[in-house]
Amino acid sequence: MIADDDPGILDAVEAMLEFGGYEVSSTSNGATVLEMQDHFPDLLLLDIWMSGTDGRDVCKKLKEQENTRNMPIIMISASTELEKSAKEAGADDFLEKPFDMEELLTKIEYFLSK
């Protein structure tokens, strides 16, 4: 699942991942993931700054819940200065925008193979 409020990033990453054989869902609101009752994604690509939602808060809440604690979360941001706070929120990894799609695919493959 991809949570980002930038439609360009949602479209591009979703298309690339689907081309790579992944089943992808997306949302422009990170809080959507918190509202899910079941059928959580195998991995979450989560933007830090979204309108109305701080991805770090979403990440913290997901990592506190028993049913989502082990879901890998890769946080993304245009600011490298936020990498430390992303990790402090419980993110498993971090990518700076704009990111290389090959690097993203490598990270996704790594976390899904664990």
Rank of each mutant, 00 (worst) to 15 (best):
M1V: 09
M1R: 03
I2R: 03
A3N: 04
A3T: 07
D6P: 02
P7M: 09
L10Y: 04
L10F: 06
L10C: 05
V13T: 12
V13Y: 03
V13E: 00
V13D: 02
E14G: 04
A15C: 11
A15H: 09
M16Q: 12
M16A: 06
M16T: 08
M16K: 03
L17Y: 09
F19W: 09
G21S: 02
Y22C: 05
Y22V: 03
Y22T: 05
E23A: 11
E23W: 05
V24P: 03
S25Q: 15
S25G: 14
T27E: 02
T27V: 04
S28C: 06
N29P: 00
A31C: 08
V33A: 15
L34I: 12
Q37K: 15
D38E: 15
H39F: 13
L44N: 10
L44Y: 08
L45N: 02
D47F: 12
I48Y: 05
I48P: 00
W49Q: 15
M50D: 15
M50I: 13
S51I: 13
D54W: 08
D57N: 12
D57G: 08
V58D: 04
V58L: 13
C59G: 14
C59R: 03
C59V: 14
K60G: 01
K61R: 15
K63W: 07
K63F: 05
Q65W: 09
E66M: 09
E66D: 09
E66R: 11
T68D: 00
R69S: 11
R69W: 10
N70K: 14
M71N: 01
P72C: 07
P72Q: 07
P72V: 06
P72F: 01
P72H: 00
I73Q: 01
I74K: 00
I74F: 00
I76M: 14
I76D: 02
S77H: 03
S77Q: 06
S77W: 05
S77C: 06
S79T: 08
S79K: 09
E81M: 10
L82P: 00
L82N: 05
L82T: 07
E83Y: 01
K84Y: 03
S85Y: 03
K87A: 00
K87S: 04
A91Q: 01
D92A: 09
D92N: 13
D93P: 00
D93K: 05
D93C: 02
D93F: 01
F94P: 01
F94K: 00
F94C: 04
L95G: 01
L95N: 00
E96T: 13
F99S: 02
M101A: 10
M101F: 11
M101K: 12
E102K: 14
E103R: 14
E103D: 14
L104F: 01
L105N: 11
T106R: 11
K107W: 02
K107L: 14
I108H: 01
I108F: 00
I108V: 14
I108W: 03
I108D: 03
Y110N: 12
F111T: 03
L112S: 10
K114A: 06
